[in-house]
Design a protein around this nucleic acid. Structure first.
Lengths: 151, 151
DNA sequence: TATTGTTATACTCTATAACTATA
DNA sequence: TATAGTTATAGAGTATAACAATA
């Protein structure tokens, strides 16, 4: 391919907040997916391991609500982690289960956490400490606007 | 439901940049989707209309590359817009088409643009002018890390 | 009556492989 | 040999409706 053969399009969209937000999210999630694939986890699975580890005895409905994932969609996710022997379930009452990490689950959680921390660091390196904090605050403020009633 | 009946989970995840980025993106895209649904467009369709309007005569492969959408996935998107008589196609050589907005396409583009602008304004209102500019710059810097080779 | 976990299902978005016809 | 448009297909992610068992 010759250089500069392609007439560059006028990019009248990438100055829009919603668009760069979506693209940035995709870039970061994509990179995290690649990094976590090395230990056989997807981002959502790593997130669940971290939350169960920090909330031993919680239920999968509680995890669902916190992550904004529908109960119905959590079923195969949790079943997969139980199947991989990373999470254990014990009945607390007749309809729900207390979740906890298995020994292997703790190890996988720690590995995932290290990968995710390194991943964050690589992106944070693009900014000053002050800027990264401002970015975090700004994004959290937008995220908290989530008005979606959970079903 | 009684208040404070639910034991609040320890949220050890929403301080992570990748996570809040993903959630913020979802919130903003969700709201945009609702707003654009009133004129029967999805965000990606509105984006394509805007880009074709700003680049009369471009091809759908060029739009694909700019938006990071695979050529194969652009086919039904563009077909839908042509079907709705919003975009017109004229052959430029034996294998590609020059795209342009129809009269109705221009009207829809203008309507979409107004909705998207109002949408941006509502989110920008959460921040100072200085902060919003910093946010835009930060997100653009992350988005530009996109190393994904287009197939 | 409301909630938990579940099944089934559908729709969107994304990804790959392969084909054709053209350049 | 590379590119434009296309088809078919598969995998995620997400949405709703409905059900049984339980609170």
């Amino acid at each position: 391919m010759e250089a500069a053969n392609e007439p560059t399009l006028q990019d009248s969209i990438s100055d829009r907040l919603g668009y760069v937000l979506r693209r940035a999210s995709g870039v970061m999630m994509g990179a995290l997916g690649v990094a976590l694939a090395e230990i056989g986890l997807r981002p959502v699975e790593a997130t669940i391991l971290i939350l169960v580890g920090a909330n031993t005895g919680c239920t999968q409905s509680e995890i669902s609500r916190l992550l904004g994932i529908k109960r119905a969609n959590m079923v195969p996710l949790m079943a997969g982690l139980v199947n991989k022997r990373l999470i254990e379930r014990y009945p607390v009452d007749g309809r729900s289960f207390a979740l906890s990490l298995s020994l292997e689950g703790v190890a996988q959680r720690d590995a995932a956490d290290a990968i995710m921390l390194a991943h964050e660091r690589r992106f944070e390196a693009l900014f000053s400490g002050q800027d990264i904090e401002a970015l975090r605050v700004a994004l959290a403020r937008i995220a908290q606007l989530d008005t979606a009633a959970q079903e």
